[in-house]
Structures are given as structure tokens and as C-alpha cells.
């Protein structure tokens, strides 16, 4: 019963949020809030998507940047080749991200823990190297993107991107929430705790890991797809920047990965702090803050913000009562 009521509250919240976002794009004149808001929404999507694999399944993916960059360059290549509209670019990025996720999922067959993490870094660098040598999309020098005309009801492209990213973030959250409450979520939690015990209790671990990798990958790539349009530019170094990996991981762990709300909180907190610091001090300092917060939280608050807010989780972490 409470599950049903929760669903009504959740979807009501989603509807209110999207309507509010849309209304905001129609009323607010100044473009800056949309520029900043886009980045925060993007981080929400990344952190939530990351935690499907990293949080639920316990496989620490350092290759968020690989998926992000693949999303960016799928969109760029498609746009340059066919002039495909943004929706198609995003869909294509999701498909490519899902395929890459399948590949990463197969890696989990042979490796876990630090080996898996290192392998995902390796994947990111290898893909980046290929893109750097890919002339069609500008190689290492990067490529300028000419935005197409904006579609009604929006009066600026950035506002439209803001709305699109809001939908992507909400999609990521809805999927993460669905997984968390489903059998798949319980299976992932079991295999995170103990893969062999999970297998012997009937959990199809490989299948679940593949599902988690593919969904996580598709969502990250989709969130990255509009980035080229947002910046009107793409180059391999920024698209495959390791900062995306650290950010996604840090926001998820700082928020807490036991519940989908954790990464959302982490992304809002860190994303807005970063936006503020980047404007007031420097972009280096905001990356520093990210690193320090990450270290402080993994050392001092293993369950993240939601662990601090909900004493039940603290009790769990505390050992024998």
C-alpha cells in the first residue's frame, strides 16, 4: 500500500518538476540560470546513472568519461553526417552507450574490484585515442558546432537544452528508482555483497551485471549527447575528461548509494557548490573541493548524506548493537 502511495507522490513530483522547468524557460529572460542549471541537471543524470552500476552493483566504474565522450561524439558525428535533430542524436547516443555498456559488462566476467575500475579507465583512454585520430569529427583539434534553429516553444537553444537535460535527469532517476524497488535491485544488492553467495541463491549475476552496465551506460551517453550543442564545440580532451568520472563517482558516494535520492542530493549539493566556486574563485578550486569532499565522505560518512540523515543506515553501519 505504502509503495503505491509512494509512486503517486513520486510521479506527481516528477510532473510538477517538469512543468516548473518548462514554465521557467518561458518566463525567465536571463540565460545564465539555464547555463548553470543545465550543468547541475547533467550531473544529476550522471551521478544517478553511475550509481546503478557503482552503487547498486558495487562495480566502481572510472569510465564515466568514456560513456560521456562516446555520447558527445555519437551526437557530433551523426549531426555532421546527417544533420539529425537533437532527439535522434540522444537516442543514438543511448544505443551506442548501451552497446559499450554491454562490452563493459562482459569485463565483469573476468574482473572485479580495482581491476574492473582500472579496466574502465583503460577503455576510456583507448576510445579517446581513437577519437583523437578520427579526422571526420576534427581529431585532436576538436570541432565547431553550428546550432540549428531553436524549436518552439523555446526562444533560445540553451533553454531548450535545459529542458531536454531535465527530461534526461528525470528519466535516469525514474529508471534508478524502478530498479531499486524491483527484483533486479535486490539481485544487484546481493551480488554486490557477495557474488558467489548470490549465484548460489539463484541470482543470475552475469545477466544482472550486464543489465546494470547497459542501462548505466545508455543513460550516461544520453546525458552527454547534448553537450556539444551546449558548448557549440567538442574536442576529445574535454569530452573524455576524467573530471566526469570523478564527479559522477563523488556525487553518488557523497549523497549515498543506498537510495536513488542520494546521488541526486550529492549532485545538487556539489554541482551548485561548483557552479558557485567556478564563478567566484576558479575552476581549479572547484575540482579541488570535489576531491576533498570525496575523500572526507568516504572516510567519515561511508553511507553518504542519506546515511547522515537516516539514522537507520548509521545503525546498520555501526556493527553490533
Amino acid at each position: 500500500m505504502t509503495g503505491h502511495r509512494n509512486s503517486i507522490i513520486f510521479w506527481g513530483g516528477v510532473a510538477v518538476f517538469l512543468v516548473a522547468v518548462l514554465t521557467m524557460t518561458q518566463i525567465v529572460r536571463n540565460e545564465y540560470p539555464f547555463f548553470a542549471g543545465y550543468v547541475i541537471l547533467q550531473f544529476i543524470a550522471l551521478a544517478v546513472a553511475w550509481s546503478i552500476l557503482g552503487g547498486y552493483a558495487g562495480y566502481v566504474n572510472f569510465g564515466t568519461n568514456a560513456f560521456f565522450g562516446v555520447g558527445v561524439y555519437t551526437a557530433v558525428a551523426l549531426f555532421k553526417a546527417t544533420g539529425a535533430p537533437l532527439v535522434v542524436q540522444i537516442a543514438a547516443a543511448a544505443v551506442v552507450g548501451m552497446t559499450l555498456g554491454f562490452g563493459v559488462g562482459l569485463l565483469t566476467l573476468r574482473m572485479r574490484g580495482i581491476f574492473f575500475s582500472i579496466a574502465t579507465i583503460a577503455l576510456a583512454i583507448i576510445i579517446e585515442t581513437f577519437v583523437m585520430n578520427w579526422r571526420f569529427v576534427g581529431g585532436a583539434a576538436g570541432i565547431q558546432i553550428q546550432r540549428p534553429p531553436v524549436m518552439a516553444p523555446f526562444d533560445s537553444y540553451v533553454k531548450m537544452l535545459f529542458f531536454v537535460q531535465a527530461i534526461l535527469a528525470v528519466t535516469a532517476i525514474s529508471i534508478a528508482r524502478y530498479i531499486q524497488n524491483s527484483k533486479v535491485g535486490r539481485g544487484l544488492q546481493a551480488l554486490r555483497d557477495d557474488e558467489l553467495a548470490a549465484e548460489c541463491t539463484g541470482v543470475p549475476t552475469l545477466k544482472l551485471k550486464l543489465i546494470a552496465c547497459m542501462i548505466s551506460g545508455a543513460l550516461i551517453s544520453a546525458a552527454g549527447a547534448p553537450a556539444a550543442m551546449y558548448l557549440q564545440y567538442a574536442d576529445p580532451f574535454s569530452a573524455f575528461n576524467l573530471t566526469y568520472s570523478v564527479s559522477a563517482l563523488a556525487m553518488a558516494l557523497i549523497g549515498g548509494t543506498a537510495h536513488w535520492i542520494g546521488p541526486v542530493l550529492g549532485a545538487i549539493l556539489l554541482g551548485s557548490t561548483q557552479q558557485f566556486l567556478a564563478v567566484t574563485i576558479s575552476s581549479e578550486v572547484n575540482v579541488l573541493v570535489l576531491g576533498i569532499m570525496l575523500v572526507l565522505f568516504v572516510v567519515g560518512a561511508p553511507k553518504g548524506i542519506i546515511g547522515l540523515l537516516r539514522p537507520r543506515y548509521r545503525l546498520r553501519a555501526g556493527g553490533k548493537p
Binding site: 544488492q189 546481493a190 554486490r192 555483497d193 557477495d194 553467495a197 548470490a198 541463491t201 539463484g202
Partner: peptide, 15 residues
């Protein structure tokens, strides 16, 4: 080898 992030009941629910 318990699923240590779960309660006893949840451990059984997996099976």
C-alpha cells in the same frame, strides 16, 4: 557469506 547490507529477512527474499 551473508548479504551483509541486508536484514535477515531480506537475505531470504533473495532466494
Amino acid at each position: 557469506r551473508p548479504f551483509k547490507s541486508m536484514t535477515v529477512l531480506e537475505n531470504l527474499m533473495v532466494g
